[in-house]
């Protein structure tokens, strides 16, 4: 018992250390690293965590998260650049719009499960992409350039430190918020729907409503990431939400691990590091990304975080001197939704 408690404290301590190190990045690293690797992996992590949440807790593997990301980002960019809105107000409007679109998408898609859900959300991703690529209001293929983030956050290119810290705060809030949700009645019921919709209906739950609300809840998270991406890059276009990007977000989430929320940022960091430094080494970056993706899906359904977790419990097992490994982790890890049961 005390051993477990100490280990839990140890985990928390390790997390705190990681957080401090991450917070010190702008001080310790170059501007290039902070902006290129830091900002990108943070906003990519936030959009990925909206998918991790849906798939880990709701059993809904969605390809529409980049669409919601784009709705918020492009609307916020349009309002602040063309209509002269205050960036914060524009951001709020964008995120609200993404939430409304999320509600709509969720209402349509919630009737489908598993692979059907994946494909209908792929259709949503394509609809949104074609819409933004065609409509001149949003700059069509050109997109919207010269997006100015709020003045408090500084210039994301010249001096990205404040923007970085802001993204870090939003990331932590998104993580804590989604983790909190997963432990409430609503969140537990969402996991119940993931495990067995028929059982949940027999227990008195409106399964479809739960799916819709779960999907809607993840929408503002994806939307916030869209706004932050537009601010960090000072631009956004339809190309930022193409199918390739939707698949990239899925890849990121899978590499990090669909079982646990923190996997989203781990995956995003791994991807961004490789994207920044590996491209100089190889022309076939995408091939290697695909290979890593394939290996992770085949070998460790829990992703990199899952691998680290198994390594950690092995270590604990050794440290505890051959005592049986702790029966249950501090937070029960939901199983990867490898099978949808949708065919039943």
């Amino acid at each position: 018992m005390t051993m477990d408690r100490m280990l839990t404290l140890g985990t928390r301590g390790a997390l705190a250390v990681v957080l401090v190190v991450v917070a010190l990045v702008p001080v310790l690293c170059t501007t290039f690293f902070t902006s290129q690797v830091g900002l990108t992996s943070l906003w990519l992590g936030i959009v990925a965590v909206s998918l991790t949440f849906l798939s880990g807790y709701g059993g809904m593997v969605s390809l529409a998260q980049t669409a919601l990301f784009g709705v918020a980002g492009l609307i916020a960019a349009r309002l602040s650049v063309e209509s002269g809105w205050d960036p914060w107000a524009a951001a709020l409007a964008g995120i609200l719009a993404a939430t409304a679109v999320g509600l709509l998408f969720g209402a349509v898609a919630s009737g489908s499960q598993g692979i059907y859900f994946l494909i209908i959300t792929l259709a949503f991703a394509q609809v949104t992409y074609f819409y933004f690529a065609a409509v001149p209001t949003f700059g069509a293929h050109e997109g919207i350039n010269g997006v100015r983030p709020p003045a408090v956050l500084g210039d994301p290119v010249q001096d990205p430190a404040r923007m970085y810290w802001f993204l870090l705060v939003v990331s932590v809030l998104a993580f804590l918020g989604l983790r909190h949700v997963s432990r409430t009645a609503f969140g537990l019921a969402l996991q119940g729907v993931r495990d067995d919709p028929v059982r949940m209906a027999a227990l008195g739950y409106n399964v479809r409503l739960h799916r819709i609300l779960g999907f809607t809840l993840a929408a503002p998270v994806a939307g916030a990431a869209g706004v932050l991406s537009a601010w960090s890059n000072t631009r956004m276009s339809a190309g930022s939400i193409s199918l390739a990007i939707a698949i990239l977000v899925l890849t990121t989430a899978v590499i990090g691990g669909l079982n646990r929320l923190e996997g989203a940022w781990v995956g995003a960091l791994i991807y961004t590091l490789c994207d920044t430094y590996l491209r100089g080494w190889t022309d076939r970056f995408t091939t290697w990304l695909g290979v890593v993706f394939l290996v992770i899906v085949l070998v460790s359904p829990g992703g990199v975080v899952g691998l680290l977790g198994s390594a950690g419990s092995w270590l604990r097992h050794r440290l505890a001197g051959g005592a049986p490994p702790p029966a249950a982790p501090s937070t029960p890890a939901p199983p990867v939704p490898v099978s949808s049961g949708g065919a039943r």
Binding site: Q191, D195, D196, V198, P332
Partner: peptide, 8 residues
Amino acid sequence: SRLLTGLT
């Protein structure tokens, strides 16, 4: 049995 296998 139809249980919520991922929950306690």
